[in-house]
Nucleic acid binder design. Structure first.
Lengths: 248, 248
DNA sequence: GCAAAAGTGTTAACTGTACACCCATGA
DNA sequence: TCATGGGTGTACAGTTAACACTTTTGC
């Protein structure tokens, strides 16, 4: 590191990132595995997060920490909210772990959570810093996490579901070309319920944000599906304005 | 103050409260006026807010601070989010003011904003602490505030509008008995647009959360309106579940 | 009798939802 | 030929949105 102005960590404020991905089957979330002895595997897993520097804003801090811990760069993050019960760090294993990495392990910390959606295939997370690994986990299979991260995850998921009903956000999870069946599976994975195929297609197509490609699926053992891509212009327009009624 | 355990202020985390009220005409917000010399009146006005204690959770801190500054007690608050650009305290008048009241006036502060809705008639705000007065201001007339409070206010208002379309939240702003005309005015004040009377009534009544009273308006120089009150049971049910489609 | 807000229905367009069969492909 | 997911249309119910006149009261 060059002799830049000293980056001073703020002992009381951290950021945590809830990064969702989709593998055409299930909704996934990116978690880091921490060093140390944890009886329960769930306690070893945590959202990528760390203290902020005094000189950076919250969003940049979240982006920096995300990159440091997982290698993911330039991710669009959206704030979920602030979390910070005084007894947030009540689990003994978490206390021990903090003592091993922090200058001021007993400080009251409030954390600002952010969430994002990425295409899993675009990012190969790589652990750095105090994470021993960074991996995708099926959201449905997570029952607890370190600190209060489980409740942060739940709330981020709630917010994602809400957002999905008013904006075409979820499309971030899709690769550049995709089939309507894949898109529907994404909606189903996020909302946690199955949808009617015909109604889904009609509704999605009416938004006028998809453009069909010439290309079709190949080497699938069923009728090959049409590929689609986004009509970027209309897509962005709709992202800003939102739609009034888009409940499934 | 008794010899309780020492309450230690956290120098880096504050809370701010956006309290909305309705006077049957306009949407109001509760602001405190600060001591000191401010060229611009808008810079004298601020949201009620202050640093948190290390021992209290964020919500309790917001409730405590609100009571200290305005006398309002037991208000249900809802989190808007965290705000905290490093240059949040960029205005010279704000810096000076902080030096006059804070032990550590140059610390980086991030603030967690909360909002609420109250019946103006129920609360007579009384200034305390460093507020010289606490008063209701017409939201439409506010063009700027101290610190970054103006953008916090805008965001709280956006959230209130969104909430209003999915839950019967706004009803908190009404007194125990009210007319449908008054209720409609509240919706119009919050949403900032006028609504069709017949459609409004039909929609609201179908929610089945209002109960007509025997009583009618008196001494009004037009046809007296029926008074209504809430059907508490159905109202609470609907508050929890929300409604799918309630756009105006 | 006039001003002011209350109260009241209908229609047309649109939206949501439920539902079943044939098609193209690889194995 | 079978298994798999792709692709398609219709009918009914419910919801939205636009719109105008009569009523009751105080002055």
């Amino acid at each position: 590191m060059k002799a830049e102005k000293i980056q001073q960590l703020n002992p009381n404020v951290s950021v945590d990132c809830v990064i969702f991905g989709f593998d055409f089957e299930q909704l996934k979330v990116l978690l880091i595995e921490r060093e140390g002895n944890f009886e329960d595997k769930s306690q070893r897993l945590a959202l990528p997060g760390d203290l902020i520097f005094n000189s950076e804003n919250l969003l940049s801090a979240a982006q920096r920490v995300l990159e440091e811990l997982t290698g993911l760069k330039d991710i669009f993050l959206k704030q979920v909210g602030a979390f910070g019960e005084p007894d947030r760090i009540s689990k003994e294993t978490d206390k021990q772990w903090l003592r091993s990495i922090r200058a001021n392990p007993d400080a009251r910390v409030i954390t600002i959570a952010y969430y994002s959606l990425v295409q899993i295939t675009d990012y190969a997370p790589q652990a750095n810093s105090f994470a021993t690994s960074a991996n995708w986990y099926d959201v449905r299979e997570i029952e607890d996490l370190a600190f209060d991260h489980y409740s942060i995850l739940r709330q981020a998921l709630d917010q994602l579901r809400m957002e999905l009903q008013s904006r075409p956000v979820g499309f971030n999870l899709m690769p550049p070309k995709f089939t309507l069946g894949q898109l529907q599976k994404m909606y189903e994975a996020i909302l946690g319920k199955s949808l009617d195929k015909r109604n889904f297609r009609r509704k999605i197509l009416k938004l006028d944000i998809l453009a069909p490609l010439e290309e079709k699926q190949q080497e699938v053992s069923h009728k090959p599906a049409q590929y689609f891509m986004f009509n970027e212009e209309n897509y962005n327009k709709l992202r800003e304005s939102g739609f009034d009624n888009f409940g499934f």
